[in-house]
Simulated scan of single mutants.
Amino acid sequence: MRKGKVYLIGAGPGDADLITVRGKELLEKAECIVYDRLINRELLKYVPAGAEKIYCGKWSGFHLMKQEDIQEALVDRAEKGKVVVRLKGGDPSIFGRVGEEAQLCAEKGIAFEMVPGISSGTAAPAYAGIPLTHRDYSSSVAFVTGHACEGSRNEAPGVQWKELGRGVDTLVIYMGVKNLPDIQEKLLVGGKESTTPVAFIQQGTTAAQKTYTTTLAEAVRTAEEVQLTSPAVIVVGEVVKLHDQLSWFENQENRSDKMPFVHVI
Rank of each mutant, 00 (worst) to 15 (best):
K29D: 13
V159I: 15
R77L: 04
T214D: 04
G96D: 06
G167P: 02
G90Y: 06
G99A: 09
R97W: 01
I265C: 13
E42A: 13
S230Q: 06
K45Q: 12
N179V: 03
L8A: 02
Q252D: 14
I118G: 02
L228N: 04
A128Y: 08
A106P: 05
L104D: 03
Y55E: 00
L246D: 03
K192W: 03
G57E: 02
K186T: 04
E52M: 09
R166L: 11
Q252V: 08
E101G: 11
Q202D: 04
G109L: 10
P131L: 14
E113A: 11
V159T: 12
T211D: 03
L187S: 04
Y137M: 10
I183H: 02
A223I: 06
R153K: 14
E150I: 04
Q160I: 00
M259G: 01
G191C: 15
Q227W: 12
P260M: 07
Q71K: 01
E150K: 15
T195R: 14
E163Y: 09
Y35P: 00
F261I: 00
V6H: 02
C149M: 10
V34M: 03
G89N: 07
I265P: 14
K82Y: 06
T229P: 06
N251W: 05
P231C: 07
D169H: 11
E218R: 12
S152L: 10
E224P: 01
V264E: 07
K45N: 11
E155F: 14
D136Y: 05
L242W: 07
S93Y: 00
S93F: 01
A30C: 09
M1E: 10
A156D: 15
E113D: 14
Q227F: 14
A30E: 05
E25I: 07
L27A: 07
K258I: 14
G10T: 03
H147R: 10
G89L: 08
G146W: 02
T170V: 14
G61I: 13
G14P: 03
F143P: 06
L228K: 00
R221D: 11
V141F: 08
A126G: 11
L171N: 01
E28D: 05
G90K: 00
P125Y: 09
L26I: 14
I54D: 06
K186Q: 15
K24T: 05
Q67H: 15
A124K: 09
H63E: 12
G158W: 08
K258C: 15
A124Y: 03
L242N: 08
A217K: 12
A106H: 14
V233P: 00
S194W: 11
S152R: 10
P260Q: 08
A11N: 03
D257M: 14
Y137G: 06
D182V: 06
T211I: 12
A148Y: 07
F200D: 02
T213N: 08
K5Q: 15
A124R: 04
K108C: 04
V239N: 02
G12Y: 02
L38G: 01
D76E: 12
G146R: 03
E113M: 08
G117L: 11
P92H: 09
K24Y: 11
V83G: 06
N254E: 15
E193Q: 12
V83Q: 10
Q71E: 12
A232P: 09
G117R: 10
L87M: 10
I173C: 01
A78G: 07
I110P: 00
T170R: 04
M65W: 11
C105Q: 10
I201H: 01
L187M: 11
L104Q: 03
E31V: 06
